[in-house]
């Protein structure tokens, strides 16, 4: 159950709208808002949250910093990126930084609200375009050492079908799996994305002769 929710959003109207959407999704949640990185950090310091909706472009910094901070301080908190014009590359790096899903603020309220509920139930959102970018990311990274986790063939299958525009339920039917299994695969992919992004950083450092 989501009881404590943090919304970080700099545009006042969008913040109010997000609060109403969240209220709609989680009727009993206590919602705290922040309008920049500094405020968000202060809130994180003061309280523990079950979920955080974080906008990426903030006046005093990037939402990515907040996501990383949450990942270090309270890994239990479910981090969701909310973005209006989120470029694919930014979303992928947010997922790699530890976000467990993302939402596009341009969608109708009821759609967004439904996605929030789904996330609470452990079904992360993943759009075809982002699935594509994630596959590209893994292809680019490649195996660096034995410890680097690569995607399993099943996970690649899931990503491929999602990239074709199939929804989770359709992917489940196509692969003959339960929809919850698909959700687990997507969560694993997100987790591996974080690991692979650290591995990628290590690879870059290695290439630049830093290690």
């Amino acid at each position: 159950m989501v009881e404590r929710l943090l919304i970080v959003e700099d545009v006042a109207e969008a913040r109010a709208w997000l609060v109403s959407v969240a209220q709609n999704a989680f009727a009993h949640a206590r919602i705290t808002t922040a309008q920049n990185v500094a405020e968000a950090c202060a809130q994180l310091q003061a309280d523990d949250f079950d979920m955080a909706l974080v906008d990426l472009g903030l006046p005093d910094g990037s939402g990515l910093d907040i996501i990383r901070r949450i990942g270090q301080r309270s890994p239990r908190t479910v981090c969701i990126v909310t973005t209006v014009l989120g470029e694919d590359a930014h979303i992928v790096s947010a997922l790699a930084a530890g976000a467990q899903g993302y939402l596009l603020k341009g969608q109708p309220a009821e759609q967004l609200s439904r996605q929030l509920v789904q996330i609470e139930h452990g079904v992360p959102a993943l759009s075809p375009t982002i699935a594509r970018r994630i596959m590209e990311h893994f292809q680019r990274t490649g195996p660096i050492d034995n410890e680097t986790e690569q995607l399993t063939p099943r996970e690649v299958e899931v990503l491929t079908l999602i990239a074709k525009g199939l929804r989770n339920s359709d992917v489940a039917i196509a692969l003959g799996l339960a929809e919850t299994t698909i959700a687990t695969h997507i969560k694993t992919i997100y987790r591996k994305l974080g690991i692979s992004s650290r591995a990628e950083a290590a690879l870059h450092a290695n290439r630049m002769g830093l290690t």
Binding site: E110, Q111, R114, S127, P128, K164, G165, L166, D170
Partner: peptide, 16 residues
């Protein structure tokens, strides 16, 4: 890619 996004979006809306 366009069609995949479109399929996903349409499916979401219709499912709703």
């Amino acid at each position: 890619e366009i069609l995949a996004e479109l399929r996903f979006e349409t499916d979401e809306r219709l499912a709703l």
